[in-house]
Design a protein around this nucleic acid. Structure first.
Length: 430
RNA sequence: GUGAUUGUAGCUCAGUUGGUUAGAGCGCCAGGUUGUGGCCCUGGAGGUCGGGGGUUCGAGUCCCCUCAUUCACCCCA
């Protein structure tokens, strides 16, 4: 055993599990195409100010969860991305993609980093898939990102989901409400917990979704955000809900849902799953019209998006037995070399088969024939091809179907013909 | 950052009030089959019992420290 270990909060994904990841990612990519989202990749790090500006300096993420460093002491501070939205928006603004197409629909599957204590469903390096719809934030646009997210869950067969949704209103709505909330909370200030006291000044709305029962008690008597929404926000929210209901998407309205990123306005939502443990949030998102301005864009860019935790998605699917068997696909043929002195000839034949597009494996460790066959069986090779002295002399090679044990001696051309046919049939299967 | 939890073979785990060379199942390797896998049988390799210190005639077992894990708080994906 090596004395080195993976970094705390990070983990390796080995081939067995990769089969499952690939399955989920394939579904995501396919549905992204169906919904018209194109893939984007951005760097794993950005200049630190980008996140401070976008996510909000008073949030937990920026305040204590970022991996930040200065490359050379004097150079500009850099941070491993704790979320994707800011980076995507930065990239699109920098390239000025809106000049050629005013609406950009992008999706990603990317690794993120947050310096938290690891626990079930929470890592320091984790993966999110998500989508950003930039250039529109109409009720239909917001509904569309939610529909995309929910359809992925549906396609994967996930059960026990709960979609909660809320409207945070316009910036003006919130500004007015914030003052009302403060004046309500002020007499209770002495009873607020540490975190809530800090939020009282910087972002009192976050006190609303505190999980501290004492805070919830206090909040229960507070003025309601949804009663302070302007007509516009009210209408917008109703339309979003109407679109969702019309598509048969189940949701529940949660007037206390605020979420931990500062850039959201109007619609915000979160999906949780009963199959998960304490960290039961599977994904979330919302509308963020003001983010572009925050990042220095000369004009506002209406936008909405969501992100889903891939590890949590896999955990939930695992619990619900929705994942494919964790076994990497075996080769079409495993070349058996009974006598090592003929290895080079067998190696040439392997090359020919591969040139013909046939998945071919050959033992590279000089093992016994028995070991080679065992290995072929273990890796679920479809067939075994024997290449020894007799075969090279006669030009006839026994090809054994490992499932049925049927064996037949064929010329190399016949072997290639048959295996090629087999792999074509295989790839046609869904 | 706080609180608990668990560290014994590659994996899952036994290991009695402290007592000889630390075990099992699975996996791996080899043989049973002179050129044929799976099933079966036989054998083998593999452990500084997380690390350090202490108590003791003697520590996997008790004490202290430390590292790591896991779960929860917090927060979120």
């Amino acid at each position: 055993m090596s004395s080195y270990q993976v970094v705390k909060g990070a983990r390796d994904i080995f081939p067995d599990e990769m089969v499952q990841w690939n399955y989920v990612e394939e579904v995501i990519c396919r549905l992204a195409g169906v919904f018209g989202f194109n893939e984007i990749r951005t760097p794993v790090f950005e200049y630190t100010e980008l996140f401070q500006r976008s996510i909000g300096a008073s949030t937990d993420i920026v305040g204590k969860e970022m991996f930040t460093f200065c490359p050379d002491g004097s150079e500009r501070s850099i941070t491993l991305r704790p979320e994707m939205t800011a980076g995507v928006m930065r990239a699109v603004l920098q390239k000025n993609l809106f000049a050629s197409a005013p609406v950009q629909k992008l999706y990603y599957i990317s690794e993120l980093f947050r310096k938290e204590r690891p626990q079930a469903g929470r890592q320091r390096q984790f993966t999110q898939f998500g989508a950003e719809l930039l250039g529109a934030s109409s009720p239909a646009a917001v509904a569309e990102v939610i529909m995309f997210m929910m359809q992925v869950f549906g396609e994967l067969g996930l059960d026990g989901l709960r979609l909660r949704i809320n409207s945070l209103g316009s910036a003006d709505d919130r500004r007015r409400y914030r003052e009302e909330l403060r004046s309500y909370l002020a007499p209770h200030y002495g009873m607020l917990d540490q975190a809530s006291r800090e939020r009282f000044e910087k972002n009192p709305l976050r006190i609303l979704d505190s999980k501290n029962p004492d805070m919830q008690e206090i909040v229960s008597g507070a003025p309601k955000l949804h009663e302070h929404l302007g007509d516009e926000a009210r209408r917008d929210f109703d339309q979003v809900l109407g679109y969702l209901a019309g598509r048969g998407i189940d949701f529940s309205i949660d007037h206390l849902l605020v979420r931990g990123l500062d850039y959201y306005s109007y619609t915000a939502f979160e999906v949780s799953c009963t199959a998960l443990g304490a960290q039961d949030a599977l994904g979330g998102g919302g509308r963020y019209d003001s983010l572009a301005l925050e990042l220095g864009s000369p004009k506002e860019v209406p936008a909405a998006g969501f992100a889903v935790g891939m590890e949590r998605l896999l955990i939930a699917m695992q619990k619900q037995r929705l994942l494919p068997e964790a076994v990497p696909p075996g080769p079409e043929v495993f070349i058996i070399v009974p006598q090592q002195e003929f290895f080079d000839h067998a190696f040439d034949i392997a090359a020919r088969l591969r040139s013909a597009g046939i998945g071919t494996t050959i033992d590279l460790a000089g093992r016994s024939m028995k070991a080679q066959l065992r290995e072929a069986n273990r890796m679920r090779a479809a067939s075994a091809l024997f290449v020894g002295g007799d075969e090279l002399a006669s030009g006839l090679f026994p090809l054994k179907d490992l499932a049925s044990s049927a064996q037949e001696a064929l010329s190399l051309d016949a072997v290639i013909g048959r295996l090629r046919h087999a792999s074509i049939i295989k790839t046609r299967q869904p």
